[in-house]
Simulated scan of single mutants.
Amino acid sequence: MPSPDRLSQTLTRHGLRQTTVRRAVLQVLSESSYALSGGEIEQLLPPNTDRITLYRTLKSFEECGLIHRVIDTSDVVRYAACSIECSAKAHFDNHVHFKCTACEHIYCLNQVAIPAVTLPAKFEAVTRDYLLAGVCRECQPA
């Protein structure tokens, strides 16, 4: 669990004002071992949290490199905390994501880099997403 000082330092380092909602959202995402949807984040916040403020916070966090969207085979957008090196100018989350087919959680595999891909002539990639599916360690039979 990140300390209140660490949350404040992280927000300050990314040029964001300290608000109750920003601190709460950052804490929720920092404590989660898997990517969360907006609805899941909302359920973990205090009950009086405004939904519009939550989504504006997520957008601000994504723009400044605090979080990234996680791809999925469904239409649900999920969010995960970025590595400490990420910023608004450079996004270094060049890692594989893993979706468990049992619990449906999506994990960032930060230690597994997206493999290099050589594209055909006149093709230019703008984003790189890589999703593997299978059964996570929590859902493996004993």
Rank of each mutant, 00 (worst) to 15 (best):
S3V: 03
L7C: 06
L7D: 05
L7Q: 04
S8V: 11
S8R: 15
T10W: 07
T12C: 05
R13S: 15
R13G: 12
R13T: 15
H14P: 10
H14E: 12
L16N: 03
R17W: 07
R17P: 04
T19N: 02
T20E: 10
R22H: 13
R22V: 08
V25G: 02
V28G: 06
V28F: 10
E31M: 09
E31L: 07
S32H: 09
S32G: 07
S32T: 13
L36A: 06
S37E: 02
S37C: 02
G38N: 09
G38W: 06
E40Y: 10
I41S: 08
I41M: 04
E42V: 08
E42I: 09
Q43M: 09
L44M: 13
L45I: 03
P47A: 04
P47K: 11
T49C: 11
T49M: 12
D50T: 11
L54M: 05
L54T: 04
T57K: 14
L58H: 15
K59T: 15
S60K: 15
F61E: 07
E62S: 15
C64E: 14
G65I: 13
G65C: 14
L66A: 10
L66N: 14
I67T: 15
T73K: 12
S74N: 07
A80C: 06
A80F: 12
A80V: 13
A80T: 14
I84H: 13
F92A: 09
N94D: 12
H97W: 04
C100R: 14
T101D: 06
A102I: 15
C103T: 01
C103R: 02
E104P: 01
E104N: 08
Y107I: 04
C108G: 11
C108Y: 03
N110A: 03
Q111T: 10
V112L: 02
P115V: 00
V117A: 02
L119E: 00
L119D: 00
P120I: 01
P120A: 02
A121K: 11
F123N: 03
F123I: 10
F123P: 00
A125F: 02
A125L: 05
V126Q: 12
V126N: 08
V126W: 07
T127R: 12
Y130R: 11
L131H: 05
L132Q: 12
A133D: 04
G134R: 03
C136N: 01
R137K: 03
E138I: 01
C139E: 01
Q140G: 00
Q140P: 00
P141Y: 00
P141L: 01
A142W: 00
A142Q: 03
